[in-house]
């Protein structure tokens, strides 16, 4: 009886897992097949005739290649470094120093940031970047993304910092450690998985972002992949399915690789679960 129950439980578990896996995977199957299909349309089917020529054509488009392998990486990587570093510092400060109203501050900023990253504030951001002389520069894009993503990054990061036992630093303090020393030698190593989560999250957000680069950049040589994908449209302005999907696949691989790497190396998880 107990065995039967165990088997049933296991079977239910595997069935549920299989269903969930399918739910998440099926919408992407087409994207996986179409780039290898010489005559792809919107229908899912095994590539026939199978071809790699679509990728060849994509790689022949120097503008799109540069967008993906240079500009997107500069922009997403730059914002990732800035956000991760600044958010960790700020989260540490919010967690460990007697700043008044810091919870209110965290919430308030996330709230503000949600409207500012929306379309309503694109114009003031454009004007701001213009007055800084950074229109059509990758730096301008990096700065705007950094500002927009920081509040939520600090929010996520605080969770990790709050979960470090204070006793570590308290004993270091007794031993005469400096504030920077405690941050660098005690906090940083412990919150590294958190920094990785924030880093991936930031990278992913910038990587996929269309609006900010579209508003701030002009030269084809600065455009990221999210904008460059429109160069695989026909003369009439419709997507060429074989090429857009091939480019899409290439465009997805870096974020996927980054996630898999971080997950393997540090574990991609929130620490204690973000606490309010």
């Amino acid at each position: 009886m107990r065995l039967l129950r165990l088997v049933l439980t296991r079977a239910t578990f595997y069935a549920a897992a299989a269903i969930f896996a399918a739910l998440f995977a099926i919408p992407l199957v087409w994207l996986l097949f179409a780039p290898f299909d010489a005559r792809a349309n919107l229908a899912v089917r095994l590539p026939h005739p199978f071809t790699l020529a679509n990728f060849g054509k994509v790689f022949a488009n120097a503008f799109a290649v540069r967008a993906l392998f240079q500009n997107s990486i500069i922009q997403a990587g730059g914002a990732m470094l800035l956000v991760t570093l600044l958010a960790t510092l700020a989260a540490y400060a919010l967690s460990r120093s007697p700043i008044r109203g810091k919870d209110l501050l965290s919430y308030g900023l996330v709230l503000f940031s949600s409207i500012v990253t929306g379309t309503a504030a694109m114009v003031p951001l454009f004007l701001l970047i213009y007055s800084l002389g950074l229109i059509d520069t990758q730096l301008g894009v990096i700065l705007v993304f950094t500002g927009g993503l920081l509040p939520a990054a600090i929010f996520i990061m605080r969770d990790f910092v709050d979960s470090i036992p204070r006793s570590y630093e308290e004993s270091a303090l007794v031993a005469g450690a400096s504030a920077w020393g405690m941050f660098k030698d005690i906090a940083l190593p412990i919150v590294r998985p958190g920094m990785m989560v924030v880093a991936v999250w930031t990278f992913v957000n910038v990587w996929g972002g269309f609006f900010v680069p579209f508003i701030l950049l002009r030269s084809p040589s600065n455009m990221p992949a999210s904008v460059a994908i429109y160069s695989f449209y026909t003369e009439g302005g419709t997507p060429i399915i074989t090429l857009t999907t091939a480019y899409s696949l290439l465009y997805t691989l870096p974020v996927l690789a980054l996630y898999l790497f971080v997950n393997w190396r540090y574990g991609f998880r929130f620490f204690g679960g973000i606490k309010s």
Binding site: N61, A62, D136, T137, S219, N222
Partner: peptide, 20 residues
Amino acid sequence: MSVHPKKLLLALGALVAFAI
């Protein structure tokens, strides 16, 4: 569709022209 290095240079020229 291919983009020649020359075209990239031209685009760079556009950047310069736009900025200064």
